[in-house]
Design a protein around this nucleic acid. Structure first.
Lengths: 158, 158
DNA sequence: GGCAAGAATAGGACTAAGTCTCATTTCTGG
DNA sequence: CCAGAAATGAGACTTAGTCCTATTCTTGCC
């Protein structure tokens, strides 16, 4: 299975508070205790530029900073999602992916190669404007939007 | 896996062919035999206005036209997807949904209420134009696109 | 620092969506 | 109608994700 985000460089810091710092702060404000598993997951997510699946996270942590149980990973991701610190991304591979919500300047969408499974981020200001406009005239209170373009990547097209 | 350019799409006919008829024709052109399970799935899909999951299809067929084995349903859906007759839609509920691709005038996207799970279709010509433009400047050959707006529906917002 | 209360986590059984394999049935051209 | 090929059914299997419980860790307080 493709592990697209796993080798990309860390995102540059925007402003004064990194996503990881903000996440730790928001978590602290909504909890009495803070634990090592949560910190490890947050730090791993912050070091990635695109979405990771829960099992990729488990794997990366097992061979890296600190082993974290699968149940804990899912619990932590659910909580981060509820606090709107991460977004759950479904790109059509029977596996949810999660990535930090960094606000405007980290916001992006996804290209998926249906043949090799690669996932790549992309951005488009014009598309953002159009989708924001659409969101206003639609019968739900839109909290997040998600755009996925499916097709064949350069390697698979040949 | 799906290779979008690899197969000829049938020419759309001039006016009056239903999706089910077109699907049957395209299937016939790419097969030597045609069977009852495939017909039942195609007819069920054509009678729906929005996306169904594989298990909903199994259920509907069991209590309706003709029992179809789960493996057959998945096989048939995969094939319909490869032929670009249906689109697989992931709306973030750990379950894929499938719906007929009826061309321009059936094309739509999805609103999902994250609290009650309701899925609703919506359309927006301006958004379509924006996304078509984006698709041209992106490093994959875009075959289909998918937009999901998540939020709270009128009932859940109260 | 030590302690108690309760939160966080690990571990593993469990559920459910989806896949695979292979035997059986059905379709088709001749 | 027959033979060969395609379609389908049945159920074991895989894997993402959930649930429960015992254990460990964090925190406020002394």
């Amino acid at each position: 299975m493709a592990r697209p985000g796993a080798r990309l460089a860390a995102m540059p810091r925007a402003g004064t508070e990194s996503w990881s710092e903000r996440a730790q702060r928001v978590l602290a404000e909504s909890h009495r205790h803070s634990g090592g598993a949560r910190r490890a997951v947050v730090e791993l997510l912050d070091s990635q530029s695109c979405a990771l699946s829960a099992l990729e996270i488990e794997d990366a942590l097992r061979t890296g900073r600190r082993r974290v149980a699968r149940a804990s990973i899912y619990r932590i991701l659910d909580e981060l999602e509820r606090l709107e610190l991460v977004q759950k991304v479904e790109v059509g591979q029977a596996m949810a992916r999660y990535e930090p919500l960094r606000g405007e300047n980290g916001h992006h969408h996804h290209l998926v190669c249906d043949s090799c499974g690669a996932v790549m981020p992309f951005t488009d200001p014009e598309l953002e404007r159009a989708i924001k406009k659409t969101s206003r005239r639609v019968p739900i209170d839109v909290a997040v939007h998600e755009i996925v373009l499916h097709g064949a990547c350069a390697d698979c097209r040949q």
